[in-house]
Every structure is written in C-alpha cells, then in structure tokens.
C-alpha cells in the first residue's frame, strides 16, 4: 500500500481538538479517581469492619474486571438506575468519565493506602500523644506526608489513564483514537494516521511524566526521609 502522509498532516487540526478532549476526559477521570481513591483508602484502613469490607469489594471489582466491560456497564446502568427515558445530549462523555473515574479510584485507593502506611508509626503516636484525634492526625500529619510520597505512582496512574481513555472510542466519544480511526478509514491511510496518533499519545504522556518529576522535586525538598 502506498503511504501518504498528506492525509495525516491535513488532519492535525482535528487531532489537536481530539487530543484536547482526551486530556479533558483524563483530567475529569483523575479528579473523580482521586476523590474516590482517598475515600476508599481511608475506608480500607478504617477500624470499622463494614467500611473495610466495602472498600475491599470496590477495589477488587474495579481492578479485577476489564475497564472495557466497566465502560459498557456504566453506560447502560446509569440511565436504568436514574430512570432516564431518553439519554441527555453528550451522555457518553458523562458515562465515559464516570467509568474511568470509578476504575482509577480503585487503583488510586491502593496508591494512597500504600502511601499512608509508609508513614512511620511514630508520626501517628506523636500526633495522638498531643491530644489529636485519629482524623486530625490523619489530616494534619499523615496525609500531607503521604501525598508527597504518592506523587510518582499517581503520575503513573495518570499516564495509564490517559492511554486507557482510548477505550472510550467504543461508546462513540470522539477522542484521539476515535478520530484517528475515522480519518484512517476515510483516507485509506491507516499507517501514517496511527503513527501520528501514537506520537500524540507519546507527547502527552511525556509531558505528564515531566510535570510529575517537577512536582516531585518541588514538593519533596523538605522531606529527606
């Protein structure tokens, strides 16, 4: 097959837009994932058995089933649960970000849990001996230190999520991969098109990775331990 890069170059404005959407979807999923992850990590470490069991169940389910299946499940379940007769416009974006957020919440919960558990017991003891409650100790002493430590794994999760967002093409979200696929089909130039798409992903993951390294250095300077 004759390779022609013109189609790929011509599609750059469309791909730029699609890449931006990919970033937005990922950012939305990360935001949901961090909130859920923090809640689940605290529940996982809680003294209440029910909270622990619920967190373990959540984490096992979302880590133990394919994201692709979860996307479909969320896509079809949400309207059913909310008794929607017709789907709102752009519903797929909502479902897509929600599914990815729920999924990353499970991974981020484990990242936070590891971070919290990596903080020396003496820190909690010192805080408690000063009369702080368990939650005050968590909020003022443990979490600020744990956050610094989880930046690198959190960055990796961010990158994994960005790549996985290509799965959202399956529910007709016109993100980067979806757009590339459409153009590849229309122009009969799959190879230049998918190489271009790959380069877009690579550029974005590289940028995130640099940003994480920068944040890590900036926040880590007061913590030699």
């Amino acid at each position: 097959m004759d390779m022609n890069w013109k189609a790929a170059l011509d599609s750059i404005p469309i791909l730029n837009k699609a890449a931006l959407l990919t970033l937005e979807l990922t950012a939305g999923a990360v935001a949901i994932g961090v909130v859920i992850g923090l809640i689940m990590a605290l529940a996982r470490l809680s003294r209440t058995k029910i909270a622990r069991a619920a967190a373990i169940g959540y984490i096992d389910f979302f880590r133990g089933t394919p994201l692709l299946v979860q996307i479909f499940l969320v896509y079809f379940l949400v309207p059913r649960i909310l008794h929607w007769e017709t789907l709102p416009d752009d519903y797929q974006y909502f479902a897509g970000v929600l599914a990815m957020g729920l999924n990353s919440g499970a991974y981020i919960a484990e990242i936070f849990r590891a971070g919290i558990q990596s903080i020396d017991r003496g820190q909690t003891e010192a805080a408690r001996s000063l009369g702080m409650t368990q939650s005050q100790a968590m909020r003022y002493v443990i979490l600020p230190q744990a956050f610094k430590r989880v930046i690198p794994p959190l960055g990796n999760e961010f990158i994994a999520l960005l790549k996985d967002s290509s799965l959202l093409s399956i529910i007709a979200i016109q993100e980067l991969f979806y757009s590339g696929k459409i153009i590849a089909g229309r122009t009969f130039q799959p190879i230049p098109m998918y190489i271009t798409v790959a380069l877009y992903y690579l550029l974005m993951t590289q940028l995130i990775s640099r940003w994480v390294t920068y944040m890590e250095r900036r926040l880590g300077k007061n913590d030699l331990r």
């Binding site: 020396d120 820190q123 003891e125 010192a126 001996s129 600020p144 230190q145 913590d223």
Partner: peptide, 12 residues
C-alpha cells in the same frame, strides 16, 4: 506530654 526516643517531629 510525651517525648519519644526517635523525636517523631513532623518532617513537613
């Protein structure tokens, strides 16, 4: 008040 062997200052 309690003072520990390993100080346990809050490093952040």
């Amino acid at each position: 008040g309690m003072v520990f062997q390993r100080f346990n200052l809050f490093p952040h």
